[in-house]
Each structure stands twice: as structure tokens, then as C-alpha cells.
Design a protein around this nucleic acid. Sequence first.
DNA 1: CAGGTTATGGACCGATCAGTCCATAACAAG
DNA 2: CTTGTTATGGACTGATCGGTCCATAACCTG
Lengths: 193, 193
Amino acid sequence: MARPSEFDRDEAIASAIRVFARHGYEAASTSALIEGMGIGRQSLYGAFGDKRRLFLEALRRYADGSLDGMAAALARPGRASEAIEAALLAGLGSADELESGCLGVGSIVEFSRSDPDVNAVNDAAAAQVLAAFAARVKDGVASGEFAADLDAQAAARMLLTLRSGLKVAARGGAGEDELREAARLAMRGLGRV
Amino acid sequence: MARPSEFDRDEAIASAIRVFARHGYEAASTSALIEGMGIGRQSLYGAFGDKRRLFLEALRRYADGSLDGMAAALARPGRASEAIEAALLAGLGSADELESGCLGVGSIVEFSRSDPDVNAVNDAAAAQVLAAFAARVKDGVASGEFAADLDAQAAARMLLTLRSGLKVAARGGAGEDELREAARLAMRGLGRV
DNA sequence: CAGGTTATGGACCGATCAGTCCATAACAAG
DNA sequence: CTTGTTATGGACTGATCGGTCCATAACCTG
């Protein structure tokens, strides 16, 4: 019926995620987005509306991908502590983080609570991560790996907070070994040492 | 010998810290800085050079103040765990964090390792915070409060990472109770539960 | 091949960006 | 009070910002 797009929408958004995560929302110029996404100016506005809507779509997609990675790590069999450690470190190969950073943490730091649409995405993502953490923590409690009186919700909140800190540390140049060591040390708080 | 300044340099920088912490470096326009600092455009450039140098001076000053607050908390007598908890939460009354955010975490998220001058300030600040944490951790080990085989340097790195996460959580709207609970849970990893 | 529809690229828009220029104001030293 | 020096405010700069307009290209349907 009409001329088809010359670019792949998913790839374009993946590229937009990289640009936004590297520079932040405000500092990511539309020209940088166009260049990074490999599409024309009019195509960006035609396909995504405007910079803000593109950002929200990128943020949603990033949150989905990040959640998938963590869920996969948490689903691994074996000790709960190992699964949780893997989830804490998922996607934190520090080279990537230096290049691009975490769009979720970046958006929280940049927007705080000022943008309702950003809040909605981040709140929904946080709720899912918390639920996934809490479930695996409960496993660990049931198996006797963690302390019997452990509050799974509180533990999940601590783990999410810890993960934010690990992302900041990775963005600041910390190596994978340091990150793992910090994660392990904090996780010792979950259980019978 | 000449006309004196009409503004107080310290107050002006304190205001600049607020503007930079709220918006980030790139998104803080010179007009916003001028308005927030309550000085004229020419005064800003005359007294501080340019936006970048003003930012570096603000970042240095913020790091100094933040370090002072943590050192004061760590110096309190009594149990090491209480002093460390106070240091972790120092300056994190979440209302402030929602308004302004942490300039240190903000600069790491925005610049990663791309700016040598920013790196220098943040690296120096991190080294001091790590040393202060490690010293108090050693106290706790010596007094039997923490596990005897605890690596104080590793513990300090974990605590710094945790603090970054707490700042992100506060910026994202977490209440003081949640922050304290997360801090306590992670700190349980330091000791004999 | 023809007609309808959408995608594309480049020129273009007013607004705002960081930073400069300059005339004037306000002070200290003589 | 005069003179030298610095601080101040407002006008101004070229560059870049996010976003729009429009002519043209490329495709699908008939």
C-alpha cells in the first residue's frame, strides 16, 4: 500500500538506548540520535513522534531487557545465593557500563520523580525486579540457605538498592571482581554467616 | 583598590551545587545558574571562569562537604555498626535528594570516566571515604563486633557501593525507613549475625 | 504501467545554548 | 575630589537545540 521503512524499528530503538544511556536524556541531541540510529531526521519524527516519546519507548524496552536478564539469572538451579549473585551482576560487564551506562539508573538520577511517565516505567520495572528477588529469597529461606526470620520483601529491596550501587560503581570504573566481592559481602547479610 | 564583589562566593557556589545537582551538568543552563546563584552573567564568568570550571569547583566543594558529614557520623562513639549506619544515611533525608540529588553520583552517571578532571575529584573523594569506612570497620573487628576474618578494605568498598545505591534509591523516592532497613540488612554481612 | 500512500532527505524555523563586548557603576588609594 | 581598578548588567555573538515543511523517492495495489 505504501513505501516500507528502510530501517528495522527494533534495531533503531536498540541504538537509541545506547545514545540515551551514554549521554542522558537532555544531553542526547536529536542529531546524535539520528546519527547513532542510522536513520534520517524525518524518519525519527515519523516513526517515534518526538525525542521524549522515543526516550520513553527506549526506557520501556531497556527495562524489559534488563528484567529478562535478571529473571534468567534468578531462574538458574542450585543455590539461591548464587542465582541472586548472578542476577545482581547481570549485564554489568563493566566495559559496557563505561560505554553506555544503565538507562534505568540514569533516568532516576536525571529525572528523580519529576516525570510521571518515567516514574510509571521505573516503578513497574522495580516492582517486577522486587517480586523476582523476593521469590528467590523465599526459596533460599525455605531451603535453609538464608536466615529463617528473613523478611523477603525487605531483602528484595536491599538487593535492588545494592544493584543500583553496583551499576554506579561499574559506571565509575570498578572492575568485575570488585563488584562481585561487594555483592557477596552484602549478601552475607541474608543468612546465617 | 577596586570595587568589591556584591555576592558571597561561598553562597554562590552552594547555590550552583544545588542547580547542578538538580539538573546535571549538561542540562544546567548558564541562565539557570545565574538565576539560582542570584548573580549577573558577567559576574559568573568573571568570578568562576566558565561553566565547566564552576562545575569542577562545585563538585570539589560538594565532595568536601559530603566527606565532612560522613566523617562526623563515623566519629561518633559507641558501636561501629551504628556509626557506619549513620554515615551511610548521612545527608540522605530523602526530601533533599528528591530536590537536588547527589552531585557525586550524578557526575559519575553523567560522565562515567570520560573527564579526567571529574575523575580526579571523584577518585580522591572515594579514596577518603574508603579510608574512613575501613578504619571504623577495623574498630568493629577489633571490638569483636564484626567477623574476625573480615577484610576491612573489601568491606569499605561494599559500603561505598551500598551508599551509592542508597542515594539512587533516595533520588527515586524511597523513604528514610526503607533506606535504613536496606542499610542494616546489607551491614549484617559484616558480622557474626 | 498508473495511482495512491508512505518514507526519506535537506532546507528551514524560532528558541536557546555558552560565552563575549562594552558602557557604566562602585569602590580604594592618593 | 580625582584617578585607577574591578564589578555589574544588558545587548549581542555564532552555534546548536528540538521540531517542521516540502519536494521527491520508493513501494503496494489495482
